[in-house]
Design a protein around this nucleic acid. Structure first.
Length: 601
RNA sequence: GCUGAUUUAGCUCAGUUGGCAGAGCACUUCACUAGUAAUGAAGGGGUCACAGGUUCGAAUCCUGUAAUCAGCACCA
């Protein structure tokens, strides 16, 4: 097997398999390094920030006095990198005194800071290529001539050291492979990811739109998108009601005082729409979360321990003033409807309730055939007392309990600081969008804080008042995000039960067979199936094509043979095989499909 | 919000040096009556994102605003 030589920052050199992950990472790191050298050569005086290999490529940050590096300069940069590689540019590793390294980086403030941060005992390991000096923070290839099959993909802004209070540098993203085939495959994969994008499919299939003229981040659901949403909503409400949840409806507007009590106004104000001043001293607020609303439901009666766990649920519409740059199709919007639920429990019920929520969530995921996700325990950032309620004991207690529950259930997870809600830690279920961005789909959150803020009580077995704990949970996220996620996962080819159009009937000759098609449609509709007849004055091939491009699960052609024998000719989406069967046989087939959520098992 | 790019018909996009606003798809009408991925013809459709400016003349050049996209930051 082919091998490559890899040089580590500690000075060791070893041979590794060219097909290994280690070699690929070194290749990415090396390409980033050459890109830095190319930048320095092409744009004298440019300042260079981080260079990093990532899971699917590499990036380099830079900053210039005049215009930043732009996308149309990437080709020239590629050529410059190729030249470095072709000349087999030597990457030198040296461990030098800090002041010497700083002197070599001259007046580049970003390189200087990186070098200072990397220094140990006054010494720092640096790589040198061309005129560039960069901190040696990862292994590179000893020979740069392996860098042939690469592409600089895009430019984008990125804050220096990831902090929005810092200046913004220009980040160049790229991808690189040892083999040409691998690069081409990677570029193809990136292209396909774009075709999976829910915004593209949403437009093609006419599911939804967002019109900036009537409001950014405020989506309109077209009939087909609305059908998908309605199906999800009916499914999840039925599922929750069957699992002991009490579904309610509560207003989207609420007196601002309530959000002052809850702490939203203090900790979440930036993400809230400004209050509406009603002129008589009353201020109304569009709710950014449903928890205070469900607390009102809890508080409406004196509660007994016998009622706990009390599970209040709602498809609650909320408004959040998301920053303009973060809006994205249905994934990030300013008006959203959350599959929300709040369980009020006694302290000794937390663990069981947490487990039962998780169990329900896994069941729901199974029905939607969602398998690609990871668990994240999201804790507060203890240093950030602005954002999170300042109560060490509460946080430590809640975070320990959450971790304990996950360990008890033997589930794998990772921990992330600074990802909690302002009122408590949470278990997040993380998925990836088509374009590879991480997002939270489901969440279960422990909350000791809001019950205290609202002075919630239940009467215990001992006749005394006790404080409940709230568990916030969203199983299928918001209707917006979940629909976006499913659209990408299924690539628009929704399973029959979710598909907005389940059956398309095509008469061979409309004036002869159209009536039979209508009759079938009505029978299917009576059986709860979404079917329609294509009566248009078009050739069959045209209608078949459209049924396929619109990803209708079942296309039924009816002509003379079918009318005479009360049959249908069935073509499933994505298949070319045509099967003629009786109407009853087809009904059995599609009803079985619906009953199993189109899953194989 | 920030960096960069973009914004032309319902959708996807052309539009040269500043000189009459374009195509494909979709839509409407007509003809064709069709057996599994596009029948043919004709027609309608535009405040060239918005507001200013330069110019005899602006889709095109300049300034500002908004939105969209890639990403960062933030987040369901």
């Amino acid at each position: 097997m082919a091998q490559v030589q890899v040089l580590s920052p500690d000075g060791s050199v070893q041979k590794v398999d060219r097909d290994s992950q280690e070699a690929l990472q070194a290749l990415r790191q090396t390409t980033a390094l050459l890109a830095k050298a190319a930048l320095k050569q092409e744009f004298p005086g440019i300042r260079l920030g981080e260079d990093n290999a990532t899971d699917d490529g590499f990036f380099i940050d830079s900053d210039k006095d005049d215009a930043q590096v732009s996308a149309d300069q990437l080709e020239d940069l590629e050529a410059a990198i190729k030249k470095f590689a072709k000349d087999d540019a030597k990457i030198e590793l040296a461990t030098v005194p800090l002041d010497e390294a700083l002197a070599q980086a001259s007046d580049d403030q970003f390189s200087n800071e990186l070098i200072k941060a990397a220094a140990k005992d006054g010494q720092v390991a640096i790589y040198k290529v061309g005129d560039v000096v960069a901190v040696a923070n990862a292994a590179v290839l000893t020979y740069a001539d392996a860098i042939k099959n690469f592409k600089l993909l895009s430019v984008a802004g990125a804050y220096w050291q990831g902090m929005s209070s810092n200046p913004m540098l220009q980040r160049i993203y790229g991808t690189v492979f040892f083999k040409k085939d691998a690069l081409e495959e990677d570029l193809k994969r990136r292209q396909e990811a774009k075709e999976r994008d829910h915004r593209v499919i949403g437009n093609d299939l006419d599911l939804f739109f967002v019109d900036p003229k009537v409001g950014a981040g405020l989506p309109y659901w077209m009939p087909k998108g609305a059908t998908i949403r309605r199906t999800i909503e009916r499914y999840i409400i039925d599922k929750e009601v069957a699992n002991g949840y009490k579904h309610v409806y509560t207003p989207v507007l609420m007196n601002l005082d309530v959000y002052k009590t809850s702490g939203h106004w203090q900790h979440y104000r930036e993400d809230m729409f400004p209050p509406m001043d009603m002129g008589d001293g009353e201020q109304l607020e569009l709710r950014p979360m449903n928890c205070p609303s469900h607390i009102q439901i809890f508080n409406h009666h004196i509660r007994s321990y016998r009622e706990l766990p009390l599970r209040i649920a709602e498809l609650g519409m909320m408004h959040r003033y998301e920053k303009s740059g973060s809006l994205s199709g249905l994934q990030r919007v300013r008006e959203m409807t959350l599959n929300d639920g709040h369980t009020f429990v006694a302290p000794n019920q937390i663990l069981d309730e947490f487990k039962s929520i998780l169990k329900l969530m896994i069941e729901v995921y199974h029905d939607f055939d969602i398998n690609d996700y990871t668990f994240r325990l999201s804790y507060r950032d203890p240093k950030n007392t602005e954002k999170y309620f300042d109560d060490d004991e509460m946080w430590n207690n809640a975070q320990t309990m959450l971790k304990q529950a996950m360990d008890d259930m033997g589930l794998e997870y990772y921990e992330a600081e600074g990802e909690a809600a302002f009122y408590g830690p949470k278990l997040d279920v993380q998925t990836k969008t088509a374009l590879g961005n991480d997002e939270t789909l489901s969440t279960i959150q422990l909350d000791f804080m809001l019950p205290k803020q609202f002075d919630l009580k239940y009467v215990g077995e001992d006749g005394q008042e006790h404080r409940p704990i709230m568990i916030h949970r969203g199983l299928v996220s918001t209707m917006e995000r979940f629909t976006a996620y499913l659209t990408e996962m299924y690539k628009g080819a929704f399973p029959t039960w979710l598909s907005p159009e389940q059956v398309k009937l095509i008469p061979v000759k409309d004036d002869v067979h159209g009536e039979y098609a209508d009759k079938l449609r009505n029978e299917f509709a009576a059986a709860g199936i979404r079917a329609s007849v294509d009566h248009r004055n078009e050739k069959m091939g045209y209608k078949i094509r459209e049924a396929q491009t619109k990803k209708v699960p079942y296309t039924l052609v009816v002509g003379e043979n079918e009318v005479n024998e009360n049959k249908v000719t069935v073509r499933k989406y994505g298949e070319t095989e045509q099967i003629t069967k009786t109407k009853a046989e087809f009904l059995d087939q599609i009803l079985a499909d619906l009953a199993t959520y189109s899953r194989e098992d």
